[in-house]
Design a protein around this nucleic acid. Structure first.
Lengths: 159, 159
DNA sequence: CACGATACGGAGGCATGGTTCCGCTTGTCA
DNA sequence: TGACAAGCGGAACCATGCCTCCGTATCGTG
């Protein structure tokens, strides 16, 4: 917290005036990230005319977010694990936000199914684990993570 | 360390007599795990007559190890990242152990290529990132991780 | 049994990092 | 200008967790 305050050019006291606890600061950051993700899906991916390309871009987005944000993988992992991270939870983005994100993913997958570009058994809840997996690869510092996006995507193609 | 000592039924002092530092204990654990992994590949997977099945089992093994060992994903991730985790490194299994593991993986992949069961561009160094990815899914608490093994494996099939 | 050596236990020292609190500065209004 | 309010900074407090140290128990030997 001292470092955060220093980076922000204020004293710790000021940080604690805005966020009463370290955890509440973390929650605020996570919620902001969630907004970014849902906004990206809604405004960039769903309008994309090519459903397959939208999927591809969703993985790219996931990877770049992890590059900018060391904690991203953990959060997505938490969603993937399906744990009850509602408002009260430890680093909980409100459950409503998770719902919204899953709904958008659902649309993404539905479009892909309609176009027949993905395997028949693919469901929306498959995505968070795959996003988490990719994020962990990026987190590990693997330089050519795009290669692994390609491999996973190949695994999603119709059989 | 206090907890570890208690679980072992000894005092902290005794723990520190065997492992002068917490890190050295971690290193010892990691090295032991490495031995288990290399032994498994050598004694179980390489003798498996079906190269594809061997690959499949390697992922299964990876997942179960992560289930038993919360730190497994991190270690594999470190290898995947290709960072210099030699003897001096932070939680470094000796570089020699990493080399050995990569060599064994090389054999596994070579056999798969010879049988023509995997995509042509697959190389041995692709595996650590994939193992790390799977481990992170397991770590996240996703109950049906086998499903994601299947998806990734499908991504490894010849195109 | 006496004695030295070896091994043990766990209280205490010390560093780290989250949180609180109080004195000071800044801005506003009469 | 003086008095008050609001906001700020950072020193100090406290819990946690790694590690050290010393008094004690155990074991082998003369």
């Amino acid at each position: 917290m001292d470092d955060i305050a220093a980076r922000a050019g204020v004293g710790v006291g000021t940080v604690y005036r805005h966020f009463p606890t370290k955890q509440s600061l973390a929650v605020a950051i996570v919620q902001q990230r969630f907004s970014m993700i849902t906004a990206f899906i809604r405004d960039e991916l769903l309008p994309d005319p090519d459903p397959w390309n939208a999927l591809e871009r969703s993985f790219e987005f996931c990877a770049s977010t992890q590059l900018a944000d060391r904690g991203y993988a953990d959060v997505v992992g938490t969603i993937a694990g399906g744990s009850p991270i509602a408002g009260g939870g430890p680093h909980g983005p409100a459950m409503a936000q998770v719902e919204e994100l899953l709904d958008l993913t659902e649309l993404l997958i539905a479009r892909a199914h309609a176009a027949g570009v993905v395997r028949a058994d693919l469901v929306a809840t498959d995505m968070p684990p795959l996003y988490a997996a990719l994020a962990s690869i990026v987190q590990a510092g693997v330089p050519d993570w795009r290669r692994y996006i390609a491999i996973v995507l190949d695994g999603l193609r119709p059989r």
